[in-house]
């Protein structure tokens, strides 16, 4: 699904990302953990061709992201609030994304119905623009919008941050459920070791721009990760 070759990103003399090789196969739920400044968002931005790699390439389904735009049809992402359109209501935003992805209004409505629990009556029919929603509710809108049109690749940066405990648990269940589909690849970054170990099949640790650990998630993984991060100074 995703392949990275000799990928580096430098700003002046500072190397913020240096990944010689990484392959994420189709159907995997891949978690990325790391401290602030480790390069998680940089890596995701490179996947989406939002920043330019200094060297190397990112390939999604055989398409080099900076050469063609074809990967966009099957990829959905929510990195931060710059993926939301503040002056739209959540419904309008969902329809907008739906139109872009060829999903009709009734289909979007149906999908949203299935999220009514997740929305907790705070999103739909509120007569509010997205810019007037709380941070947590904005995040819900952004994350759910990525499910529209059933994209094969989902990229979510810190999806659990700002969410209330109930929603965090629901989102985890939701992602695990989505991940059962063998055609869906999901990329998640998080500060929270527990969340990623519960959701992801594979977890990579990013430290100063390089991948220092790459686990297949097992019963021991959480302990190992905790040990790793508590030894960091």
């Amino acid at each position: 699904m995703i392949r990275i070759e000799q990928l580096t990103k430098r700003y002046g003399d500072t190397t913020v990302l240096d990944i010689p090789a990484l392959e994420i196969p189709e159907g995997q739920i891949f978690g990325l953990v790391g401290n602030n400044g480790a390069g998680k968002t940089t890596l995701f931005s490179l996947f989406l061709d939002l920043i330019q790699a200094t060297e190397g390439t990112v390939t999604i389904n055989g398409i080099e992201v900076h050469r063609s735009e074809e990967w966009k049809a099957k990829t959905a992402a929510f990195l931060d609030d710059s993926f939301l359109i503040g002056y739209l209501t959540p419904e309008e935003y969902f329809y907008f994304i739906g139109e872009l992805r060829g999903v009709s209004k009734p289909q979007v409505d149906e999908l949203m119905d299935s999220f009514s629990d997740f929305f907790n009556d705070e999103i739909l029919n509120q007569k509010k623009y997205i810019r007037d929603l709380s941070k947590g509710n904005q995040k819900k809108v952004g994350v759910v919008a990525t499910f529209i049109g059933d994209p094969e690749l989902l990229i979510l940066d810190e999806p659990f941050a700002n969410l209330d405990p109930t929603t965090q648990i629901r989102l985890k269940e939701l992602l695990v459920e989505k991940g059962k589909d063998i055609q869906k690849t999901i990329l998640i970054s998080s500060h929270d070791i527990q969340h990623v170990t519960e959701v992801c099949e594979r977890i990579a640790v990013l430290e100063k721009g390089t991948i220092v650990q790459d686990h297949k998630t097992s019963a021991k993984t959480q302990k190992e990760l905790e040990a790793f991060f508590s030894n960091q100074t």
């Binding site: 990829t75 931060d80 993926f83 939301l84 359109i85 503040g86 992805r101 049109g149």
Partner: peptide, 14 residues
């Protein structure tokens, strides 16, 4: 500008 990253990563051709 406020949501340019969305426009650049969505299923939109320039």
């Amino acid at each position: 500008s406020a949501y340019y990253p969305l426009m650049m990563s969505q299923n939109i051709v320039y």
